[in-house]
Amino acid sequence: MILILKNGATDDQIDHVVTRVEAMGLKSHLSRGTFRTIVGLIGDESTLNQEVLNAIPGVSQVIPVLPPYKLASREAHPESSVIDVSGVKIGGGNLGMIAGPCSVEDRDRMFRIAESVCESGANIFRGGAYKPRTSPYAFQGLGEAGLKLLREVGDKFGIPVVTEITDPRNVELVAEYADMLQVGARNMQNFVLLTEVGKTQRPVLLKRGMSATIADLLMSAEYVLSQGNPDVVLCERGIKSFDPSTRNLFDVAAVPVVQGLTHLPIIVDPSHATGRPDLIPACSLAGLAAGADGVHIEVHDCPEEAKSDGPQALLPEQYKDIAHRMQLMADLLGKTISPRPGATSRSLNPPPTEALA
């Protein structure tokens, strides 16, 4: 950490700064310039309170050398992390191919979509049992019935499932059924939710908020890591822009930027980033070319009947085409798409038919 002292700081103030710093257990390195005096701090910065340092008379600015997201930073963990989602690896050259509908819907449709994306090479199936919607009158998801159906689909096709968690009170329930917990863009800075998710043993898919900086995203990941859960996968899903041409601005540059700052894997979500099926193939390949550790795509067999986000979903045959092209891209980059694990012996009773109506 570096302390920049105010222009014209007196010798007494400089001596006081040095004394205070050394009283905190750190060594100081004094550098006097023509216009500014700088005090470098040497030692364990984790014990320092930046606000306390800012309050010392004569201090103009406190500049951390290490990032505030200590557990997520590459300084703390130089090697890229590999996250295991019930047998599917993401990171370190392993690609996660997440596909499925926005919402968990009726049983037959879920089975059709799952069968199709599995045949195309997807290794994690997605579907929302709880849906945070802008309108309180929009479809909010099937709740626990949807979780049971999602688990049934996962077991039938031997594929891990990921679903969004929206409420801290439901964390244990969702973790009972899902292999991976998704924290959506709207909840990226719901710190109570992040803390509860961090207490689980489930891998977490953390999406970047619509107006969040990269530093904001990494600090949110720090909340999960600080609770003892090391399995976090970041997701670039677009940020708000002034241009209405796409649903959001697909910040593909965020992928290499994030990888330079953290050991955590990062995937891209061109479905939410663009909101346009015609742009999803190009943006999927662009994400992989930029170094992404996977791609998250929404797929529906009849988008006009989808209960949520139908206009941005690919048809199964469209997903099959782009999945093939992503496999070619993976081969070109020397990366591996983890195969989905075999079917499990676990079984659950299907949810009541009326609950899925």
Results as ranks from 00 to 15, higher is better:
205 L>K: 06
206 L>N: 07
206 L>D: 04
206 L>R: 06
207 K>G: 07
207 K>S: 10
207 K>M: 04
208 R>V: 08
208 R>F: 08
208 R>H: 13
209 G>L: 09
209 G>D: 03
209 G>E: 04
210 M>V: 10
211 S>C: 12
211 S>P: 00
212 A>F: 06
212 A>C: 14
212 A>N: 14
212 A>D: 06
213 T>D: 05
213 T>V: 06
213 T>Y: 09
214 I>P: 06
215 A>D: 14
215 A>S: 10
216 D>S: 04
216 D>A: 05
216 D>H: 05
217 L>M: 15
217 L>V: 08
217 L>G: 03
217 L>Q: 09
217 L>P: 09
218 L>R: 09
218 L>V: 12
219 M>P: 01
220 S>G: 15
220 S>Y: 05
220 S>V: 11
221 A>R: 10
221 A>T: 11
222 E>K: 12
222 E>H: 14
223 Y>V: 13
223 Y>Q: 12
223 Y>N: 15
223 Y>G: 14
224 V>F: 12
224 V>S: 13
225 L>T: 11
225 L>A: 14
226 S>Y: 13
226 S>V: 14
226 S>C: 15
226 S>R: 15
227 Q>A: 15
227 Q>G: 06
227 Q>W: 07
228 G>R: 14
228 G>W: 08
229 N>P: 15
229 N>M: 13
229 N>H: 13
229 N>S: 15
230 P>T: 07
230 P>G: 10
230 P>Y: 03
230 P>Q: 06
230 P>N: 07
230 P>V: 06
230 P>M: 04
231 D>G: 10
231 D>Y: 11
232 V>L: 12
232 V>A: 13
233 V>H: 03
233 V>S: 06
234 L>K: 04
234 L>M: 08
234 L>I: 05
235 C>K: 07
235 C>F: 07
235 C>N: 04
236 E>P: 02
236 E>M: 03
237 R>W: 10
237 R>L: 10
237 R>Y: 10
237 R>A: 09
237 R>G: 04
237 R>T: 02
237 R>S: 08
237 R>F: 08
238 G>Y: 04
239 I>Q: 01
240 K>T: 14
240 K>I: 09
241 S>V: 01
241 S>M: 00
241 S>I: 01
242 F>W: 04
243 D>G: 03
244 P>R: 03
245 S>G: 08
245 S>Y: 13
246 T>S: 13
246 T>G: 01
246 T>M: 10
247 R>Y: 03
247 R>V: 07
247 R>F: 03
247 R>T: 05
248 N>M: 02
248 N>Q: 01
248 N>E: 00
248 N>H: 03
249 L>N: 04
249 L>Y: 13
249 L>P: 00
249 L>K: 05
249 L>G: 00
249 L>I: 01
249 L>E: 05
249 L>A: 12
250 F>D: 02
251 D>C: 12
251 D>G: 08
251 D>W: 05
252 V>P: 05
252 V>I: 15
252 V>L: 11
252 V>E: 04
253 A>R: 02
253 A>K: 00
254 A>P: 06
254 A>Y: 02
254 A>D: 07
255 V>L: 01
256 P>V: 08
256 P>I: 07
256 P>M: 07
256 P>F: 06
257 V>H: 01
257 V>D: 00
257 V>L: 14
257 V>S: 08
257 V>T: 11
258 V>T: 14
258 V>N: 11
259 Q>H: 07
259 Q>T: 02
